[in-house]
Simulated assay, not measured.
Amino acid sequence: MGLVICSLLWNAADAGQQKIKYDGDGYHLVRFPYVAGQESYDPWHMHDPAHGGGTPSKFPDARSGLIWPSHDGWGVLTALAFWEPHSSPTEYRTRFVRDPLGAGYDSTATSDSAPTGGGQYRSYVWQMFVHKGTPLGFKISARGRGDAKVAAPLVHAQFKLAIHTDVHTP
């Protein structure tokens, strides 16, 4: 079975603080730099700044938060978010989204969790069919009392897509 992979990493210590900007849906599309190294891996050019516009994207614009599947297939999406341990949210939310910047916005695998007594480290996994030409994004939200959005600092994030390209049908 064929497998193609894109693995993205952003770390505040290396790439600077990521300002959390909430979109109309109340979530922030996590952005990733266009660099290789560490955990980042993109031989299929699924996180290419040329995708999705007339001019190349530049980190940290919104398009730098997209993975563009290179193949149709069964996608395994994984993500990791580390929040500043002493921030004030009462709830953390995440979701994977198909076409997060376009008219075909389709969120899936939305989850929420309460803060723990220690570090705020979360990992996520979801599986779904992915299609070439339909970008994917990882969105986050930190909420306070009364569902108020909080600008809690994100300090580390990863977003990965593994596409099984040889899906058999009966």
Rank of each mutant, 00 (worst) to 15 (best):
I5T: 14
C6P: 12
C6K: 05
S7C: 11
L8G: 05
W10T: 09
D14S: 14
D14A: 12
G16M: 06
Q17G: 00
Q17I: 05
Q18A: 11
K21W: 00
K21Q: 08
Y22A: 00
Y22V: 02
G26S: 09
Y27E: 05
L29V: 03
V30A: 08
V35G: 02
Y41W: 12
Y41K: 12
D42K: 11
D42V: 09
H47G: 03
D48M: 03
P49T: 02
T55P: 00
A62R: 13
L66K: 02
L66D: 01
I67C: 01
W74I: 03
L77W: 00
T78G: 06
F82H: 15
P85S: 12
S87Q: 05
T90Y: 00
R95M: 14
V97I: 14
R98N: 09
A103F: 06
A103C: 04
G104V: 03
S107E: 11
T108N: 03
T110K: 13
S113P: 00
R122L: 15
S123K: 13
Q127E: 14
F129K: 14
V130T: 14
V130W: 02
K132N: 10
G133W: 06
G133F: 10
T134K: 12
L136P: 04
G137R: 12
R143S: 10
R143K: 14
G146P: 06
D147F: 04
D147Y: 04
D147P: 00
K149A: 13
V150Q: 15
H156L: 07
K160M: 07
P170F: 09
